[in-house]
Simulated scan of single mutants.
Amino acid sequence: MNLQYALLKDTSWQSQIDWQLPDTPFMSFAFWQALIDTHAIGEQAGWLPIFVLVYRTDDVGHKATIDTIIEPVDIAQAVAVMPVFVKNHHRGEFVFDHAWAQAYAQYGLDYYPRLVTSSPYTPITGQRLWLAAGETLDTNIVKMIMAGVDDIAQQVGASSWHGLFVTPELAKLAMSAMPAHNVSDPAQITHTEIEALTANNPILERQGCQFLWQNKDLLQDGKPFTDFDAFLTTLTA
């Protein structure tokens, strides 16, 4: 069977298949439903979600638009889903690419809209897609997901896609699925280099530094903090 992708705006697919338990509560369906219900994500919030659903099919051809699935999708054959947000700002990401925006503006290019895959408002490294029960993430699935991302980018005229706080596993598979380049200083990139990078659709790895506080009491005796004062005491100890 072949892998194909569909671009979906709603979350009806969640209840139609058995999904693996995510590695972080910030990828639980309950958390995402809360984001939707409180309008923390959505077009008005500047976080327009589109879901790239990868599924198995006997069909070879494939056509899809964001608003309409031209060919019928058998949700029961879904293997993975990755959220992609269409954004015109950087808010709620905890990591910023203003240097890229400035570089584009310097050469008269449009940086917005841009595409972002993340757990909104959450600077926690973790899983950034949902896998169906019994499935294992591999290069073939990631290649199909990236094809869906590229399709979205072309349809909305996005400049780029950003996977934020992704797991090392997903980063490695994404870089294996597409040509990789390293740019040390986006602010110094030339117009010719921007055009070359855009034409080649590469994955660029961007590294940052996080300061993490651990629950020492939990690590030592298996007990969590009793209250916020205990948390502050541990931080200052």
Results as ranks from 00 to 15, higher is better:
Lys223Thr: 06
Pro168Tyr: 00
Leu170Tyr: 03
Gly126Asp: 02
Ala174Asp: 00
Met82Gly: 01
Asp221Tyr: 04
Ile152Arg: 12
Leu109Ile: 01
Ser12Leu: 12
Glu195Asp: 09
Lys223Asn: 12
Val142Asp: 02
Ala132Asn: 03
Gln77Lys: 13
Pro123Ile: 01
Gly42Asn: 07
Tyr5Trp: 09
Ile50Lys: 02
Leu8Glu: 05
Thr38Lys: 14
Leu131Arg: 00
Cys209Ile: 14
Ala230Pro: 01
Ile69Tyr: 07
Arg56Gln: 14
Trp100Leu: 04
Ala45Ile: 04
Trp161Ala: 12
Met144Trp: 02
Thr65Asn: 12
Lys9Gln: 15
Ser159Lys: 13
Asp138Glu: 07
Arg91Trp: 08
Asp110Lys: 15
Leu212Arg: 07
Ser176His: 10
Leu212Thr: 09
Trp13Cys: 02
Lys143Tyr: 04
Gln155Val: 06
Ile152Gly: 12
Leu232Cys: 10
Ala64Trp: 00
Ala171Thr: 00
Asp67Ser: 14
Gln33Asn: 15
Gln210Val: 05
Asp110Ser: 13
Asp74Tyr: 00
Thr167Met: 06
Pro179Glu: 05
Gln188Lys: 15
Pro179Cys: 11
Pro49Trp: 10
Lys143Phe: 01
Glu43Met: 07
Ile203Trp: 04
Val60Thr: 12
Trp130Ala: 03
Ala158Gly: 12
Met178Gly: 00
Ser176Ile: 06
